[in-house]
Design a protein around this nucleic acid. Structure first.
Lengths: 115, 115
DNA sequence: CCGTATCCTGCACGATACTG
DNA sequence: CAGTATCGTGCAGGATACGG
């Protein structure tokens, strides 16, 4: 009598994978990480470097990324006050994953387009 | 005069990464892949192994995964006709990525929970 | 057993305007 | 410059019922 397949480690895998995906999925997360990563450290610079993003969405995404410790928000006193956004070193731990996804995605496009 | 940072390879990275993420993100993709992977090969078995999924959603996700060549849908003639869902070998290419995401996700939870 | 057909809901994201 | 405030919308996913 066949036992029902429980794929018992499903939750143990799905939960952390979803945690990871939540950090990088969404329409704007990756463009923002890349933009800040190449040196755009001011709100307006980031916004202008990402065509189509609105300030409301950018502000929300920056808060998300800051909570996830990928991004640091620094207030520079002076006149006028400046806000700096910079990547945390921790953000580098995402790099190998991003590149794996990139490579897989490039290959996948070939797989699905050629019959 | 500071040149505007263009992060010129943004699209070259973002596009394939998004292609990859589209395949595995969403609420049900991963549970389905895992369920089929451990041997649930009938529609109803898959449905019962994933609490909360509705047949409409399952049918749609199975079609998606089939189009992405991760899944094969086999019609077994006989009486009654049976439908078998099995993972394509190609689906294995996702495994290292899934495990990278899992490991990163497990660690990330520690990072964000401890101050 | 393997789905489709309707109808519905929430939320990510958008447009536009405004502020300390 | 670095955001907030309002209002709006599309679409992934859900509830429920039915069909070959």
């Amino acid at each position: 009598m066949a036992k029902k397949k429980e794929h018992c480690d499903c939750l143990n895998t799905v939960k952390p994978v979803r945690d990871a995906l939540d950090v990088i999925s969404g329409k704007w997360k990756l463009p923002i990480i890349i933009s800040v990563g190449v040196g755009n450290d001011r709100f307006t610079d980031i916004q202008e470097s990402i065509p189509g993003i609105t300030p409301k969405v950018l502000a929300k995404e920056l808060k998300d990324l800051e909570q996830h410790k990928l991004l640091k928000r620094t207030i520079l006193d002076g006149y006028p006050v400046k806000i700096l956004y910079t990547l945390e070193p921790y953000a580098d731990t995402l790099t190998p994953i991003i590149y794996s996804l990139k490579d897989w995605g490039i290959n996948h496009r070939k797989v699905v387009t050629k019959e």
